[in-house]
Design a protein around this nucleic acid. Sequence first.
DNA 1: GCGGGCACGATAACAGCATTCTCCAAATCT
DNA 2: AGATTTGGAGAATGCTGTTATCGTGCCCGC
Lengths: 215, 215
Amino acid sequence: MAVARSLDSARVRSEGRVQRFLDAGFELLASAESGRDFTVQEVVDRSGQSLRSFYQYFAGKHELLLALFDEAIRSTAERLEEQVAKERTPLERLHRFVTEYYRMCLPAPKGRASKNNPTPVLAEFCHQLLTAHHEEASRAFVPLVALLEKTLSDAVEAGIVRSTFAGEDVAGGILSTIMFNAAYGSTISGTEPQEPASAAEEMWEFVSRGIVTQS
Amino acid sequence: MAVARSLDSARVRSEGRVQRFLDAGFELLASAESGRDFTVQEVVDRSGQSLRSFYQYFAGKHELLLALFDEAIRSTAERLEEQVAKERTPLERLHRFVTEYYRMCLPAPKGRASKNNPTPVLAEFCHQLLTAHHEEASRAFVPLVALLEKTLSDAVEAGIVRSTFAGEDVAGGILSTIMFNAAYGSTISGTEPQEPASAAEEMWEFVSRGIVTQS
DNA sequence: GCGGGCACGATAACAGCATTCTCCAAATCT
DNA sequence: AGATTTGGAGAATGCTGTTATCGTGCCCGC
């Protein structure tokens, strides 16, 4: 019992420390100018702890970034779920998912990048995960994929989405379409980004009906 | 005239040197195991030149990567143009573009990554460009965007693509859709990648007709 | 030919960053 | 209280990109 108590308090303390590192990380991500990566030392300083502690609780910078990324995705999925729950029909829910996720993935205009609004640094880390750590990447994306997959299959059942497009793989594809279109579409084309609301609707037009004329 | 000749020979020599660095870079990209970035020293060694020369011809590693990326895109656009030219109708050309570009963006299965098959390293660099150097990124993508934009507007004129979808911005969006779906779709969803041919056709289905049932 | 300048190779120096190590004080447990 | 763990401060290490130094061979106009 004494043992149990001591373990508890130890765990509480650890969690507090881990959390402080994570918070410091998010703060740095939010405040950094575009593309600037933070250094471990900065995280340590800002969290008011020591290098030693950092490496006691994280195997390396990679682990910290992974944890931040995880939390960013989880938080995004939660917020999306709330939004989607507001809609009544499967089609409206799908529409809401697409447009809302699109907005979240748009690059933060000026200041406040939130957990739901991936900063350039997290986006770049995302890329590293996707290219070099498939397992970890897949695991991190689970909440989002699951939510979209559910939304999709409901729509399929309701007969408003072609049955070919049920399944996780399609969900993954649609996620990447939305995410990267929002993040990079205007940069790739070299055009000025348009207003978010109409861009989101165009995204939905594209996802839902494709580009060819209906025959 | 002697002056001219000497300048010529100097330029020829320079181009030779620059080219050797580029070649070495491509070789390293092609031979590196997944995700491994090369070091400047490796490029220097493999090209049989000196660090000094490297920094004489490139402002930094960034410039080398940019040049490699440029050439990769140019080469991809060229090959795509050849492919597309084989088809007769605007619709078939568009279809060809989508499926062929999709194949090119699929991660190289084992060995031979070519200039047209972006290696993980170039993909990651692409990401850095897109997030932190919009200007350079846009410029690099011009050949691809132009080709697709042309293909698209032909299709619009022929009445087989909705007129909303002419324009560079749409071309950029479609490119990112194809590219990132090919590269990351299966990783995000955590599913096994399917066979390239059918995956490419599915991509086309998605791009052309969207996901909702036709009404 | 010939001497001066210039491009180049080899290599050391420097700086930034992640990661590890050492030493020691303070907190916590028994 | 004594023993043991925890954590802080900072130096040390290693890798990499970048810059600087030095000496040499080659090409140039004369």
